[in-house]
């Protein structure tokens, strides 16, 4: 994260050195863009705080003791709906693993968690438009399902 500030500072210094006016214009452009989307991000924060509230219990309860196919489907659904930072999601996945939950279920949860964002829809829609957002998320869900099945095959948890 510090890297981001270092990069910004270096870019600003170089930019300022070449063209003062353009630098100020750039900062204003960034600021305006940020102010425009800020309400969207704020709304997102409220939704995430609510969703995170019940998702941890939901995950432990529903992914912990299911048969593998049902568990994977639940994993795909829960992962799509919730949103978690990695430092919560991975330790949680580690706990599930130690309880004997299969890699397939964990893969379903972890990949959709990252790739499919129902919660981020309001922000993604602003930048990509509703149609592109929906199509991209559906494509991501399909990819996540393929990864899930592959994991099951790879770890020998399912045989067709």
């Amino acid at each position: 994260m510090q890297a981001l500030y270092v990069i910004m500072a270096i870019l600003l210094i170089i930019s300022f050195f070449f063209d003062r006016e353009k630098t100020i214009k750039s900062i204003n452009r960034g600021k305006n863009k940020f102010m425009k989307i800020l309400p969207g991000y704020l709304k997102l924060l409220v939704i995430i705080s609510l969703v995170l509230l019940f998702s941890e219990d939901l995950i432990v309860e529903y992914l912990g003791n299911q048969n593998i196919i049902l568990g994977s489907i639940m994993g795909l659904i829960i992962g799509s709906i919730t949103m978690m930072p990695g430092f919560i999601a991975y330790p949680l996945a580690g706990v599930l693993l130690s309880r004997g939950v299969s890699f397939m279920v964990i893969a379903a949860f972890v990949t959709t968690l990252k790739m499919v964002g129902i919660v981020t829809y309001p922000v993604e829609k602003e930048y990509m438009g509703a149609k592109a957002t929906i199509y991209r998320n559906i494509a991501s869900l399909i990819i996540a399902a393929i990864i899930t099945i592959s994991m099951g095959l790879f770890y020998g948890e399912v045989l067709f």
């Binding site: 750039s26 204003n28 960034g30």
Partner: peptide
Amino acid sequence: ILILPPAFVIIGLFEIW
């Protein structure tokens, strides 16, 4: 709070330069 402001400044620089 930490990431978005510098990210948007870099986006601004990108769009102008």
